[in-house]
Amino acid sequence: MADDTVTGPSPGGPGLVADLRVPGRLDARVTAVPGEVVAVIGPNGAGKTTMLRALAGLVELEGSVEVDGASWTDPPRLVRERSLGFVFQDQSLFPHLSALDNVAFGLRSRGVARARAAATAHEWLDRFGIDDLAGRRPHELSGGQAQRVAIARALAPAPSLLLLDEPFAGLDVGVATALRLELARHLASYDGIALLVTHDALDALTLADTVLVLDGGRVAQTGTPHDVAARPRTDHVARLVGLNVIRDDDSFRSFSPSAVTVSLAQPEGSARHRWHGTVLSAAPHGDAVRLLVGADRELIADVTPAATAELGLVPGRAVWLSVKETAVQTYALGPT
């Protein structure tokens, strides 16, 4: 699958050129230039975490990984010989070491003297605003603090490749929002390549230069966050950004759930943009009520609470959905 909107790195030059094949789980090409932040999104089981683990050398890999002109796969490099930082989903801070020693760990194992490693670790904790917690053990830290330590630990040795596996999973919304802003700042000043696996469209939109959509182990789409959000090619991304996407033979049609009209009687007019189905669920969404309707496909529609009551839109109710032609965006199937 071609890398469409971003100028890819040239082989042998700086940046990441990887052809990741893990039989039965992943078959994806990913490229990035130094300083680029790539968000990897996709449904559960799409191979997102496998992609990070393959780059790190934690799963057996067919294919190749080249970072800044040096191959990590031919000859194969051990995990510890790869210049990478890995932020794990569960943080995985060493429970017996203080926050400071956790952050200094990567520097110490790469041969930095104890005092200098400690000084650098203090700097990193300070950048995350938690240097006063340097002496604490992980169990004495909150989720947000622990995740800051984990990110600082991964960044401290200045790796060429930073791999973040859902860094905001399991955090409170408020904490995640604050941390997302902080991370955006750190990633802006980070001159390596960052790959960020996320479930959250917001992460992709706020943090990434490029979005890579994985589906069934393959790259379904790459592009700028704006492009991917505006013209999603998979149901998953459509759901993430809150759009309905319909794939036709040679093109995609997408439309916003607020553009959908819900009625009990069959609507008049264009036959192309209407569906008959039953309400599967109804849940508050902002000021509106978001309906999930099972027609020949699953579609989402936003209606007012008043309309919900008036039409009796409860799960099981048969409804008609229709969209005006002008509200539908059509784009080509192939890579743009």
Binding site: L78, V79, A154
Partner: peptide, 24 residues
Amino acid sequence: RYDVVAATLGADRWTTFRRVTLPL
């Protein structure tokens, strides 16, 4: 799990054993 974390931070197996595995 922690052996893996230590490896991603550049630690060889002996260092990992001394500083992570054994203390835990």
